[in-house]
Design a protein around this nucleic acid. Structure first.
Length: 113
DNA sequence: GGCCTGACATTAG
DNA sequence: ACTAATGCCAGGC
């Protein structure tokens, strides 16, 4: 799949598929991209974030710990938390999201098992 | 072409 | 449980 779609493009597509009130980990995005080890490249793509809070809800992308990445990319720390909370994403007092409750199971989740 | 960097993940101690 | 080091991929110079 490296014909016309670059890795970052695939990342944007995957992140774009994340439903509201749900979060995905870099590893998942990387997996959807075809490279389960490209979690870093995913961060790279998001870091470029062409459309933050618009088409690429990077705030829904968290790391393995359920911790949010540098939220400053959204306008300020806490802003991301507010966004996720507004979407129905439970947060811990530590400032982490409850992955057990809002982890995204992938595009398959949209259809049926 | 090679080297370095980066919003992660994983394994080992 | 925590910290440290390594591996992975893509982009930038």
């Amino acid at each position: 799949m490296d014909a016309l779609m670059t890795f970052d493009e695939s990342v944007y597509a995957a992140v774009r598929l994340i439903p509201r009130g749900r979060v995905a980990t870099y590893g998942q995005i990387a997996l959807l991209c075809g490279n389960p080890r490209a979690s870093r490249a995913v961060g790279w793509a998001l870091r470029r974030n062409p459309a933050p809070g618009t088409e690429i809800p990077c705030h829904r992308v968290v790391n393995r710990e359920g911790r949010l990445a540098p939220a400053f990319a959204f306008g300020g720390p806490g802003a991301q938390r507010d966004l996720l909370e507004a979407e129905g994403v439970p947060f811990f007092a530590d400032g982490r999201v409850d992955l057990k409750r809002c982890v995204w199971y992938g595009p398959e989740e949209s259809g049926s098992v």
